[in-house]
Nucleic acid binder design. Structure first.
Length: 270
DNA sequence: AGTACGTCCTGATCGC
DNA sequence: TGCGATCAGGACGTAC
């Protein structure tokens, strides 16, 4: 579910609602065995009692809550969400962990598919290790983007999903950006000109910024970022069977890249 | 190393 | 209405 705009809107929401400065007082984790691979670990959550929140950071899709003595990483996986709980809330389904902080500030990790992770890291550097530059980092340039793709021969779509090359792009925004610049997801990256790689880099940013802007302007009735589904209303490319290319007005086609479906226009995307 | 898969888990949706 | 097959916005591990 969450890619860069969704995680960033969550980060801002937690900051705005006053999480910074509060202290973790109690943690509840669902009683279910955790396997080492596959299922996301919640192990980091057990360690936070008595730690105070100094700041909340993000790179790509990785959220990092900086505490007094370490960093608590949140990664939403495919279906994870963080909710701030009101006392009158009916409990959400699929709650995996609950955190009580000072002054009745409560948050919950909600995750039907159990791929979300809450991890202990020694530092921010550790939390972000393995991640390339954040896609919206102002210091990240199209030149560096091209450098990160240098020597690669793979198809462009899976490379855009590689978080070490550019952090924050997921399946939908990759499709969206490729459509904007009329590049096929199957194009080998070494056949794309430097100029077009620059255009693609710009398109990624435009897609992410547009979506973040949309989310921030359309909170739900309680002021929460609207991070659940509803991708369609902030995308040009509607990723559904039978969707049409907004330029060519012909049906989109799909391709699979290792299990991930790409939607694209077989006419204008070359 | 880089590339191309398969796999982790469970709910929602679609077709019969 | 019921039931199986298929699909899902992420990130890894593995085999070449």
């Amino acid at each position: 579910m969450p890619e860069l705009p969704e995680v960033e809107s969550l980060r801002r929401y937690l900051v705005r609602e006053g999480m910074i400065g509060r202290t973790f007082e109690w943690v509840g984790i669902e009683d279910k065995p955790e396997s080492a691979n596959g299922t996301g670990t919640l192990a980091g959550a057990r360690l936070v009692v008595d730690q105070s929140v100094k700041s909340i950071e993000r790179r790509g899709k990785q959220l990092a809550v900086v505490l007094d003595e370490f960093v608590l990483g949140f990664h939403m996986g495919m279906t994870g969400q963080v909710h701030i709980l009101d006392s009158d809330d009916t409990p959400a389904r699929f709650i995996r962990a609950v955190f009580n902080l000072t002054d009745d500030f409560r948050i919950a990790l909600v995750d039907p598919r159990r791929w979300a992770k809450i991890q202990h890291f020694e530092s921010l550097e550790h939390a972000f290790s393995g991640l390339g530059p954040d896609a919206l980092d102002p210091d990240f340039t199209s030149k560096q983007f091209a450098t990160n793709l240098d020597g690669r021969t793979a198809q462009i779509k899976p490379l855009l999903l590689n978080q070490a090359i550019i952090a924050g792009v997921g399946n939908i925004y990759a499709d969206e950006a490729l459509h904007r610049v009329e590049i096929s997801p199957a194009r080998r990256v070494n056949t794309i000109s430097k100029k077009n790689l620059g255009s693609l880099f710009d398109a990624i940013r435009i897609s992410l910024e547009h979506s973040l802007d949309f989310i921030l302007k359309h909170p739900d009735e309680r002021g929460r970022p609207y991070i659940v589904d509803a991708y369609g209303d902030r995308m040009q490319l509607h990723r559904k069977p039978g969707s049409f290319c907004p330029r060519c007005e012909i049906p989109l086609v799909t391709l699979k890249f290792g299990g991930r479906t790409a939607y694209y226009c077989g006419n204008c995307q070359k």
